[in-house]
């Protein structure tokens, strides 16, 4: 699966990934037979409504699963290796060195009894026992400046002495500590006010320009995606329903869900009177509808939609869509 598509090299390739949780009502499928590629040197925006499985997918890429969950099937290939079949020690060395993640609740990522700098030291030493403290300090300061934090004011502080926004930025800095090949950012601005969001997003765009780092940027704010992503994957009910370049997603959306999602967003396309909330609730992940997950809410559904689940079909070099009717609806 590392073959080139559109002349780009595949960095991360997910195939047939299914993640399930045991819940009182039964088995909840948060990710359902999902396929997704991430290319080198790209920022992939991952969007979808709350609860569609974005965070679960992101965590599973680093094989982090809540105790009541399991990875039922699938492969996650990165650099020729399947993350899901690594040994414990291999996995430990892989994490953060190859792929780092900024969690959705990133501001809670720090141990309350340790200074920020001690986290940097811990993380570096876990992957390089011979690392020197002054080198770690130098690198940490560099990274703090990169996320526009004052190194002196942050590194020697305890987590509770920083604001939520400062912590989120400090985690982003820590994510780049070992220069990973892929950075996953799961709604990195969730706890910030709009102004700080804008500022941090701009910082990230700058960092992206400077470092050329590949990223998966998770959000439900399409405006943020437009600013930072090269390509967008739209997730619905535990699967990817459409993946395409940013331009295509915004101006030539193919999946009815993508269209509905765009209509629900102000300021990107259309005016406020066109703004419509998505009709109907998300599918119940414990009892998903048969056929296409979106068909109960879809204005274009036909008989086959409620019977057969559509495959993710290749539209062109970059674009993929999972809809029985994408050809006729275009």
């Amino acid at each position: 699966m590392s073959s080139a598509a559109g002349g780009k090299e595949v960095l991360l390739s997910i195939r047939g990934l299914t993640v399930e949780f045991r819940v009182p009502r039964g088995i909840l499928r948060a990710v359902d037979n999902l396929d997704l590629d991430v290319y080198s040197d790209e920022v992939l925006g991952l969007v979808g409504e709350s609860g569609c499985g974005k965070s679960v997918l992101a965590h599973t890429i680093l094989r982090i699963v809540d105790p009541n969950g399991r990875i039922a099937s699938g492969k996650i290939i990165f650099g020729g290796r399947d993350i899901l079949s690594m040994s414990k020690e291999e996995l430990r060395r892989f994490r953060w060195k190859e792929i780092a993640i900024v969690f959705q609740g990133a501001f809670n990522s720090f141990n309350p009894v340790m200074r920020i700098f001690e986290h940097m030291v811990d993380t570096t030493l876990a992957h390089d026992e011979n690392a020197k403290k002054d080198e770690i300090l130098k690198r940490s300061k560099e990274l703090m400046r990169m996320v526009r934090l004052d190194p002196e004011a942050v590194l020697e502080r305890y987590p509770h002495e920083l604001s939520g926004g400062m912590k989120q930025r400090a985690v982003a800095a820590m994510a780049m500590l070992l220069d990973p090949k892929l950075l996953i950012l799961d709604e990195p601005f969730s706890a910030l006010d709009v102004l700080t969001q804008k500022f941090f997003l701009k910082t990230l765009v700058d960092i992206r320009r400077e470092t050329k780092k590949s990223m998966i940027f998770i959000t439900h704010d399409l405006a943020q995606v437009a600013e930072i992503a090269d390509r967008v994957a739209v997730m619905y009910g535990g699967v990817i329903v459409e993946a395409a370049s940013v331009e295509d997603i915004f101006y030539r959306p193919r999946h009815p869900y993508t269209r509905a999602l765009l209509k629900a967003v102000p300021s990107i396309v259309g005016s406020v009177d066109e703004l419509k909330p998505l009709p109907g609730p998300l599918p119940d992940p414990v009892n998903p509808p048969p056929g296409c997950e979106f068909h109960p809410r879809c204005p274009h559904r036909v008989e086959i939609c409620s019977r057969v689940r559509p495959n993710l079909e290749r539209v062109d070099d970059v674009s993929l869509v999972a809809c029985h009717r994408w050809r006729e609806l275009n």
Partner: peptide, 17 residues
């Protein structure tokens, strides 16, 4: 159940640490 424990695992810290 705290986030910072999961976060430490994600950073590849050794179990003993």
């Amino acid at each position: 159940g705290e986030y910072y424990v999961t976060a430490a695992e994600a950073r590849g810290l050794k179990d003993r640490r």
